[in-house]
């Protein structure tokens, strides 16, 4: 029993050492504040996100689904993280083929033709905005925001925000949105053992 127990304890301790940083990440702090837009403009669908101030940061990769039904991409706007994969699922009721492609300089792709019931997938390695289209149907277009970290929130209109469970470290708060007239200032701050509050992020006219 003692002979079996020693290796088990060794493995357990090794795993604990390896997973310790991950457990620390899991116990992050909330980050909150307010967004103020120059001139009080009610910008819609604003995405607030955190970028690690230091370049190295572990990211787990997810897979997201976008359906194609009624000759529309749903959701038409999706926020994902660098390294994530998006599956485009053709779930039309009728035999309608779709194609998915993008000319975005950071993420150019053409997934070919997908029949009813098929799934086309693509991995997004670089951050940025991606407009994508179906080459068959003229009103089929969608938008992806590919962020450098998973810590983000979407505001319907400017106001208070909160991003939960942010790991300790140095972070930069940024915002992006669909209205091209405005740009976000950035805000750098540190997350420690306490919640971060009262941040004020300014969105200004270009």
């Amino acid at each position: 029993m003692a002979q079996i127990g020693k290796p088990v304890i060794t493995i357990f301790l090794t795993l604990l050492l390896v997973l310790a940083p991950c457990l620390a990440w899991a116990h992050g702090q909330p980050v909150s504040g307010t967004v103020q837009v120059q001139g009080g403009k009610k910008l819609k669908k604003m995405i607030l996100y955190l970028e690690p101030a230091n370049s190295s940061f572990p990211i787990s990769h997810n897979t997201h689904k976008v359906t194609q039904k009624g000759r529309r991409f749903n959701p038409g706007l999706q926020v994902i993280t660098q390294g994530d994969t998006v599956e485009f699922i053709n779930n039309e009721d009728k035999e309608i083929d779709h194609n998915v492609y993008s000319l975005a300089k950071t993420n150019i792709f053409d997934l070919g033709l997908g029949e009813k019931g098929s799934t086309l997938k693509v991995k997004f390695e670089k951050e940025g905005k991606v407009n994508y289209y179906c080459s068959v149907h003229k009103r089929m277009e969608g938008k992806l925001f590919i962020l450098p970290s998973r810590y983000h929130t979407i505001l319907k209109t400017p106001g208070d925000f909160k991003i939960d469970n942010v790991p300790p470290g140095r972070w930069v708060l940024k915002a992006t949105h669909l209205h091209r007239r405005y740009k976000s200032k950035t805000l750098e701050f540190t997350v420690g053992n306490q919640p971060v509050s009262n941040l004020v992020l300014e969105i200004v006219k270009k």
């Binding site: 083929d97 194609n99 033709l113 080459s135 068959v136």
Partner: peptide, 9 residues
């Protein structure tokens, strides 16, 4: 022109 795969099909 339409996508090649669409035309082929």
């Amino acid at each position: 022109q339409s996508h090649k795969e669409f035309l082929d099909k």
